[in-house]
Each structure stands twice: as structure tokens, then as C-alpha cells.
């Protein structure tokens, strides 16, 4: 942040006219995503993990004082003997997960995305990734999914983790992705980092494409359209789909390619879709525009000599404000309305 904006923040504020915050104007840590019109499922990660653990004895769960906030409490309650509470100690969380993996177990370690990416990074790099150990790191509050401020907003986790060899990175869109991703990453023999939506999670993908199934490493077309191709990941696939529905009403055809696996990237599908001529290609991610999906797609296209008109939707290269999540999603251009408006303006 610049000195100027610091000074601005320090000026006294007047009480808002409508105090009595029953509205959504809160910088609380836990905020729900606006996903109007979608059915929701409770704790899809926790329930999927319990189901899988019933079939596979090797699965164990660990957390660093965030079991309740990463839906791992569902597992902890169902299988208390296979759950390890590490206290608020993210470094040892990762080292211990590595140790369990060495002894033949299949650890799922949870915390918030910021604390895995920032605090525990070296432990993930050396104890887990360098040894290519099958540890699954599952992290809540990815990107801008809390209005609590930079301490909890993991706006650069994908950039951090993309640089790590051996690591598979998954950014699921909804409850369908999350539930199906759990067995898929368990079957993968190597370290995985997953972004997690927790609590009540919307069911999005099957609403738009009834036969959708998550496949690790694969990008999938969710809807077709002749004017624009949005290549989206995570939460932004939902935004892209909602924006596409809106834009269709104005006669603008928006295709949405969902890329839940950020690494390894499904280059073949991306090149095939982006190569279909004439469409504007837009990437959309719940992450800084530095080092995430957008830059990964740009590299893929350029190195293959595919050069459509190209734009990126993502968070700015800045520490973000605290505030209500809907306000912030509008402010930083990742709300449905702002996604639709940006695409319209680019056409």
C-alpha cells in the first residue's frame, strides 16, 4: 500500500446513516459467497473424506486448529482415532503429514490457504514436494473469499504453489467438484494442493451441464458460445457461467471452459478451444492476475503460436481491502455483474 492510501485510511470516518449491521457490510472472517439461485450442500469435503476413509484404512486427517473451519471436523467426529489436532502450528502440520506419508498413510492436512502458502511453504516444498510424497493439502479461504483483510485473503497462493515441482494444484468450483475431487486426489500418487469452499457450498456445474464429472488434470467445456471463450477456474467458473447466462440475453454467446486443475494444466483442451477462430479469450480466476491461471494460459497460447484476442479477469496486484465480500467482489471485478460488464466492454 502506498503512503497516500495509508494516510487516507487514517482520516476519521462518520457513522453510516444506516448503522445496525444486519446488512452484508461486514469484514467478518466467515462470509458466504453470493451464489443466488443455486442449491447448496453442507461440508462436501468432510463428507466425501469420511466416505472414502471408510473404504481406505490409510486415510488420516490433520489440522492446525482449523478443523471446524475447513469441514475436517466432520471427519474428526466420524473417525476420531484417525484425526490429529496439531494446534495452531502450520509448519509441523506439514512436516508431520510428510512423516505419516512416509509410513504409508494417506494424510489430508487442512488449514487456511494463506497459512499453507505463506507460513508453511518451505515445509511443503522440502518435506512433501521434493520427496513427491502423497500428502493432500486442503485449504479454505482461497483467493478473495473473506472480507477479513490480507491476513486471511490468499490472493497469491496459486502463484506461490505453481512454482513448486511435483505439486498438483486443484481449484474446484463447487460442491460437485469438491466431492468428486476427494477420491480423485487420493488416487493420485503425489502431493496435491486443493483450494476449498467450505460450509454451505453451492451446486453449480451439474446445473449447467447435468452429466459433468470432475476429472483430475482435465479441463471441460461447460457451455458453448460463439463470441467469447472464458477459461475459468474455481469460484470464477460459477461467475463466468452466471455472466454467460446474462450476456446470452443480449445475444452475446459466451462459452465457458472450466479448468479445475491448475497444474498440470490441460494444455491440449485449452489450445483446441482457444484455437477455434474468432472468439475473444478471457481467463477468470479468484486470484491475483500475477502468476495464476491467466498467465499460465497466456504462456500456453503464445508458445503454441495461438494468438486470439486475450484478456484476464482476476484480482489486482495489491493487498486488498477489508469489507463485505459482495462489496469487495464488485470492487475488484469478480462479481457476476462486473464479469459480464468487463466482457461486454471488451467486445
Amino acid at each position: 500500500m502506498t503512503e497516500a492510501s495509508r494516510a487516507r485510511k487514517h482520516e476519521p470516518r462518520k457513522a453510516p446513516v444506516t448503522a445496525g449491521g444486519k446488512g452484508p457490510t461486514t469484514s467478518a472472517m466467515i462470509a458466504s459467497l453470493t451464489a443466488e439461485g443455486y442449491e447448496t450442500i453442507h461440508a462436501p469435503f468432510g463428507h466425501a473424506l469420511v466416505e472414502l476413509a471408510r473404504r481406505d484404512e490409510r486415510i488420516v486427517g490433520l489440522t492446525a486448529d482449523l478443523g471446524k473451519y475447513t469441514d475436517l471436523h466432520v471427519f474428526a467426529e466420524a473417525m476420531p482415532g484417525r484425526f490429529y489436532q496439531m494446534g495452531m502450528a502450520e509448519a509441523v502440520l506439514m512436516s508431520a503429514a510428510a512423516g505419516l506419508a512416509r509410513e504409508g498413510f494417506m494424510p489430508f492436512a487442512t488449514t487456511y490457504a494463506v497459512f499453507a502458502a505463506r507460513r508453511a511453504y518451505d515445509f511443503i516444498a522440502m518435506a512433501i514436494a521434493e520427496e513427491n510424497l502423497p500428502v493432500r493439502i486442503v485449504c479454505a479461504l482461497p483467493g478473495l473469499t473473506t472480507g477479513y483483510g490480507p491476513s486471511h485473503q490468499a490472493t497469491e497462493d496459486l502463484a506461490i504453489f505453481r512454482g513448486l515441482p511435483n505439486l498438483t494444484i486443484v481449484d474446484p468450483c463447487d460442491a460437485v467438484d469438491i466431492a468428486q475431487m476427494v477420491p480423485a486426489i487420493a488416487a493420485h500418487d503425489g502431493p496435491v494442493y486443493c483450494r476449498l469452499l467450505r460450509g454451505r457450498v453451492p451446486v453449480v456445474l451439474t446445473r449447467h451441464k447435468p452429466d459433468y464429472r470432475f476429472e483430475l488434470g482435465r479441463a471441460q467445456m461447460i457451455r458453448d458460445g460463439r463470441d467469447v471463450l472464458v477459461i475459468a477456474t474455481g469460484l470464477m467458473t460459477m461467475r463466468a457461467l452466471d455472466a454467460a447466462v446474462k450476456l446470452a440475453q443480449d445475444g452475446i454467446g459466451v462459452a465457458v471452459l472450466h479448468v479445475p486443475t491448475i497444474k498440470p494444466l490441460d494444455r491440449a483442451t485449452i489450445l483446441e478451444e482457444a484455437g477455434k477462430c474468432g472468439r475473444l479469450v478471457v481467463t477468470a480466476e479468484n486470484h491475483t492476475v500475477v502468476g495464476g491461471l491467466g498467465e499460465a494460459v497466456a504462456t500456453t497460447l503464445l508458445t503454441a503460436g495461438v494468438t486470439p484476442a486475450f484478456r484476464m479477469i482476476g484480482l489486482p496486484d495489491a493487498f486488498l481491502e477489508a469489507g463485505a465480500l459482495p462489496t469487495l467482489h464488485d470492487m475488484y471485478g469478480i462479481s457476476t455483474d462486473r464479469v459480464a460488464a468487463q466482457i461486454r466492454a471488451w467486445l
Binding site: 470516518r13 448503522a19 472472517m29 477479513y148 483483510g149
Partner: peptide, 16 residues
Amino acid sequence: TYGMDDSRLPMSGMAS
């Protein structure tokens, strides 16, 4: 203004 948009009193304490 506690915790509201544009407040100087965000829910988590920040120096700026």
C-alpha cells in the same frame, strides 16, 4: 462504523 465497508475499524486489526 465497526466492521463496515470503508471503516477505520476493520474486524481484524491493521496498522494502515
